[in-house]
């Protein structure tokens, strides 16, 4: 499987795009710090307090924007970074009901006799369940809604 489930809802970006965004964020943060520094110098020197105040506010706003952009970037995912999903089959003994989980094999379906033998009683074994392990999207939504993680 190349990947599945809603856990891949994060925005995909290329390496170049991410590098450009990073450069812009760093530039914005640097400029904002410069503004704040200038405003502090102006205030210390007693020059044009109103102008210094606006510079300070602009610097703070720039820093906040850079911080938000950085937080957004941590939620992005590089295009090549798809995690493969794990499909598993739960096999169960026809006679004693003993069950075990293992990787899915091509051609298996629910209800199929696998031809294997039960390690407990030696009875025939069939595929009882096939599913993927996941649930990342739900965890993300619960986090957004401020709910505790589901059991």
């Amino acid at each position: 499987m190349s990947g599945s489930g809603e856990r891949e809802q994060r925005r995909e970006v290329s390496v170049g795009h991410l590098a450009l965004l990073m450069a812009l964020v760093i530039g914005l943060a640097a400029f904002s710090i410069l503004l704040i520094w200038l405003s502090v110098l102006d205030i210390r020197a007693g020059r044009d307090a109103m102008n210094a105040f606006f510079q300070f506010i602009m610097g703070l706003a720039g820093l906040a924007l850079a911080g938000k952009s950085l937080a957004d970037m941590t939620r992005m995912r590089l295009s090549s970074g798809e995690k493969p999903v794990e499909v598993v089959s739960v096999i169960q003994c026809v006679d004693c009901g003993h069950s075990a989980e293992r990787n899915f094999s091509d051609g298996e379906y629910v209800g199929m006799l696998t031809g294997e033998r039960c390690p407990e009683c030696g009875g025939p074994v069939y595929v009882a369940r096939i599913y993927v392990k996941g649930g990342g999207e739900e965890r993300r939504q619960r986090r957004i809604l401020g709910l505790p993680a589901a059991a």
């Binding site: 169960q92 026809v94 298996e108 379906y109 629910v110 209800g111 006799l113 069939y126 096939i130």
Partner: peptide, 14 residues
């Protein structure tokens, strides 16, 4: 897709 027609006889199922 991937779901058969019968669970083998004696199958207890989860």
């Amino acid at each position: 897709v991937g779901v058969g027609n019968e669970i083998p006889r004696g199958g207890r199922g989860d």
